[in-house]
Design a protein around this nucleic acid. Sequence first.
DNA 1: GACCTGCTGCGGGGTG
Length: 697
Amino acid sequence: MPILDCSGDVIIAAATAFGKTEAAFLPICSRLISAEQSGACVLYVSPLKALINDQSDRMERLCESLDIPVHPWHGDISQSRKREFLKQPSGILLITPESLESLFVNRGTSVAGLFSGLLYIVVDELHSFLGTERGQQLQSQLRRLEDAVGRQIPRIALSATLGDMVLAASFLRPPGGDKVHVIESAAPGQGLKLLVRGYRITGLTDRDREEDEEEPVNDGSARAVASDLMKTLRGSKNLVFANSRSQVEKYADLLGRICETERLPNEFWAHHGNLSKEIREDAEAALKDPSRPATAICTSTLELGIDIGTVKSIAQIGTPNSVASLRQRLGRSGRRGEPAILRTYIQESEIDSKSSIEDLLRTELVQTIAMVNLLLARWCESSGTGRLRLSTLIQQVLSVIAQFGGITPRRAWFILSDVFAADQGTFLQVLRTLGTRKVIRQEADGTLLLDEAGERIVGHYSFYSAFTTPEEYRIVAAGKTLGTLPIDRPLQENSALIFAGRRWRVVGIDEQRKVIEVRPSPGGRVPEFNGGRGDVHDRVRQEMRAVLVGKDIPSYLDTMARELLGEARTHFSHYGLEYRNIVPNGSETVVFTWRGDRVNDTLAVWFKHLGQIAQNSGAAVRVFACESDTVAALERMASDPPPEAAVLADCVRNKLSEKYDWLLDEPLMNAEYASRKLDVSGAHEFVETLVKGHQTM
DNA sequence: GACCTGCTGCGGGGTG
């Protein structure tokens, strides 16, 4: 048993509620008991405070008779409880990455002493850290802990089953992770019931319809979808995943009003990240309560591990964001031997003279079919590597300076170089840029110290997180906070608002305190949140093409979905897309790449670099030029040596994205953007193949 | 890049 003999790193991968925690902590506890030193301890890192609360209760029960102290530590834990661990560091410490960061910053000199008896580091929900800023921060923290105690500490990770366990292993123990033991549960084939429902939107749009409540609902609108959800889900426990917070509000409101009209108790709850903790906990309690039916309309908030019991089925409105998240969502239904049930609801618009080729190809539906096929083939996206993550590098540089009260560049590079992809030249350029912005300064002996701006940044508590949160208004009704709305989506006094699945009117806005006061009111309008859509992977677009080329009709499609797929295939062959990729379309030219958004975005920027205007339309790249000019540009791309990614990035405006990007100079910003958004070799490979095929025809 | 996620030390005032 690799955990018990302390011989190395381990990943335990299994579905939720599969006993991963026990599998890790039973051997860990027996090691803790038999450890001879007095300060023997284990560090458990979790992405969620709620999970720390759940787990520390479970561990306390497990450890009660064993005399092992359990210390939960996060922002809601009192100072006095935190002092208990500081006074006598032993047992199990459960902590978030942000609270761990605060230990480095505020108690830098004590870290080595606090963790001198550290036996293991356990990372829960490892999959949620992969390919993220927070994950990069965590990797750096694990490295810094080992640096502080002067030895390697076994790392135990608990994870959902993943597409690529090799990547997960190299995340857990960079660079290669080849010595990590991976223990994967052989998941029992639980069975899956699938349905994809198609809708053809006819007549009025949803916005027109808000005026007319009595409109019949067989018209493919959101109301038609809501009415089907009502019929199918009423009376049981379900999760309905909508792709955005506004969609959650829209469907929660529609379902609530159907219940009202039919004089039924409302069993539908809204759940997303901008709703207050209390409102979300009400919804979670309703799901957990076995005595009554409840369905939550939610975003990815209910994808991760918080305990909500078993639900009967999952519904997905619109094409999923990724196969990986579809798989996570599915894992929420059908435990204890029952099959998982997934129903997907896809709306496509009616075709008229204004329809684009992308509309004609029914890309929402085709993408959904492609993703379901990939899910059934057990494929899913793995998180990207090779990102520079200069923003998180800046955070960690400032944090090690604070930890040691000053550090030489050489020593900082020694600690951080293993976990960041930046080379030494880039690292030094980051230090120089921080110097010119008065964030850090250098002593005559070479030591780096925080300068004025740096002291301000590190001194504020917002420093501990690697990610940013936009400024928000608080929504308050009768003294109770309902949640928040982004500040750059302002509301007018008297305007109507749908929030937390209910209808309100704005009665006051306090600009100073950033509070919006609302009262119940019959009118309503779905609020806007920021953001568009996530990137689609290469493999998904390739599968979409395969779906369009294919002849078989998946058995999980309903009648309308079959009809829509038939139309898509007719148009696909009408445009000859099986044999060509380039379609002239009025004054524009549409280039079908069947590649992911990174390649399409790169091509759009590359066209711009060559003086043409182009745009990624999702399924294709639209070039605002005639066919011959487009082909000429593509031939140039294929024959010239591909440009440096940073040169392409220079053509892009507004590249700021992560927390400390604003501290970078232009060349660093270009390098960061290129590593985040561009795939030049993928784009080049596409044009080469395309042009070669073109010439032989 | 959708959707998420997180947060200290200290001063002021009150109570025992």
